[in-house]
Simulated assay, not measured.
Amino acid sequence: MPNLGQMKEIKPLNNNGSIQLKFTVAGKRYAFNPLPSGNYNDKRDLTIAQAIATKIQNDIIAGHFDPTLDRYRLVPKITQPKTLLELWDLWVKYLDLPEHTQANHYKWVRKMISQANPQITDTNWLFKFNISPRTFKDRLGLIKACCKWGLSKCYLETNPYESIKSPKDNHKEIKPFTQEEIKLILEGFDKIAPHYKPFVGFLIATGVRTSEAIGLLWGHINFHRSEIVIKESLPKDLTGNGYQRIRKETKTGNIRYLPISEELRSLLISIKPNPVNPDDLVFTTPTGKIIDADNFRNRQWTKVLKIQGVSYRKPYTSRHTMASHAIDQGTPITGVAYLLGHSDTTMVIKNYGHMINRPSLPNIPLN
C-alpha cells in the first residue's frame, strides 16, 4: 500500500481557466477534469475540486482507487434558467414524479407556461388565460411551489408569485335535476338510446362519479346483502392516447357500500347476464366496450336533453341530484358525505349548505 509520504499531493491545476487534476497511480498517468464546467477562478468550484482531489488521494492510499474515475465525476453545473419553462422543467425533473402524475395537472401547467413562455420573473402572463378561479388557484399553487424550490436553489432572489392571490370564486348555483326532469331524461333515453338508460338511472340513483359507474364490475354487486361496493374507478389513462382507461382506486381512495333499493335492484336485474362473470363490466357500450364518458356526453346525453326540453347540465349533475334529493328527504349530512365518497362533511356543506336545516320565516301577522 502506498505511503502518503511517498506520494505527491494531488492539487487542482489551472488548465486555461478550467480545473484539472494530474496524478499517477501504478505507473499510469491521469489528467482528470472533475468539474466539466468548472472555473479555476471560482472559489466554490476550486473548493469542490480540492475535495475530489483529496478523495482520490485517500482512495489511492486505502487501495480503493477507481481507475475508471466514475466515482469522482460530478455532473456539469446546471445552466441558470432564464425562463419560467426552464425552471419548471428543472423542478419537475427534481421531483421525479410518477408518469401518471406528470400527465395530469403538471402537464397542463407546463402547456400553459409553454404557450406564454414568460421570463422567469414575469407574472403578468398568468392573467391572460381564460380559466376558472378554481383552476387558476390550483395552477398558481404549483407555480408558487416551483418558484419556492427555485429560490432554495438560488435560481431566484425572490418568489415573484408569492404575493399573487387567486381571483374570487363566484360560487355557481347548483341546479340538480327535479323529479320531473329525471322522468323526462329517462323517458328520452328509453326512446332514443335505450341501451344507456340503465347507466343513466344508476348515475342518478347512486350519485357515483361517472368513472366509478364505468368501472363497476358485477363482482362489486352483492344481491344477497343488497349492497354495492364502490372501491374502484376507470378513468382515462392520461399517459395513453386519450381513449385507454386505467383501473385505479376511487378519487378519494375511500371504499363505500351503497344499499340497493328495490328500484335499483330491478334496474340491475334487468341487465344482469346469466351466468355472471364477476370480472365483467356492468355497464358497456352496445358493442360491449368500455363507455367513453366524452363520447357518451356528446352523442347521447346532449341529444336526449335537447329533445326532451331539459336545460343542459353535465352528466355530473346526476351526482348533485342524488345528494340534493337525499338532503330534501332528511338524510343527515354525514350520510350524504358517505354516499358521495367524502371523508368528511366539508364539501357537502360547501355545495349544499343552503339546503340543510333551512329555516322558515317567522309567523308575523300582516293584517
Rank of each mutant, 00 (worst) to 15 (best):
T239L: 06
W88G: 02
T331P: 01
S266E: 10
Y352S: 01
E86A: 15
D169P: 01
A31M: 09
N241D: 07
R134M: 05
L21S: 11
S18P: 00
L267E: 11
N222D: 12
K183D: 11
R247I: 05
A145K: 12
Q329M: 15
K175P: 03
E212P: 05
V304C: 00
V109P: 00
A51R: 09
G215M: 04
P167S: 04
I19N: 07
R319F: 09
Y316E: 13
I113M: 04
K165F: 03
I60Y: 02
T285E: 04
L140N: 00
P332I: 03
I192R: 11
I349V: 13
N277P: 02
G38Q: 05
W91M: 05
V229P: 01
W301I: 15
P167V: 09
L84W: 10
A213S: 11
P365N: 15
L264N: 14
T250L: 00
S233W: 08
T284C: 05
Y94D: 13
K197F: 00
Y352G: 03
D328G: 02
L87T: 00
K107M: 07
K107H: 12
K28G: 01
T210F: 15
G341K: 13
Y72Q: 09
G141F: 03
R139M: 10
Y196S: 02
L267C: 13
R225W: 04
P118S: 07
N274V: 08
E232Y: 11
D138N: 15
L366D: 08
T178I: 08
P362C: 10
I192A: 07
N295K: 12
G335A: 09
V276L: 06
A193H: 12
N222K: 00
I291F: 03
V25S: 00
L268Q: 04
N298P: 04
A293H: 13
Q244I: 00
A103I: 03
N363A: 09
N130T: 14
T287L: 12
L126P: 07
H342F: 10
I60W: 03
G219A: 05
K82P: 02
G288V: 09
N363F: 08
S132W: 00
Q329P: 08
I78G: 13
D66G: 11
F65M: 06
P160R: 12
N295T: 14
S266T: 08
A323Q: 15
Q115G: 01
N274K: 13
N222F: 03
H195R: 12
I214Y: 01
K43W: 02
N16H: 12
G63T: 03
T158F: 10
E157T: 11
L305P: 13
G201F: 04
T334V: 08
Y352N: 04
V348E: 06
G330Y: 10
T239N: 07
A62H: 10
K22V: 09
P36D: 06
I204L: 09
P36M: 05
V109W: 06
G38I: 11
Y106A: 08
R134N: 15
E162D: 14
I269M: 15
E249L: 15
E99I: 08
L90N: 06
G335N: 12
L258F: 08
G353Y: 07
I327A: 04
F199Q: 02
I48K: 14
P194Y: 03
K55P: 00
R247M: 07
F65A: 05
Q244F: 01
P2N: 12
P359R: 10
P332L: 00
F199V: 03
Y257E: 14
L87F: 02
A116S: 14
F127R: 07
N33G: 05
V75C: 03
F189A: 03
F199G: 00
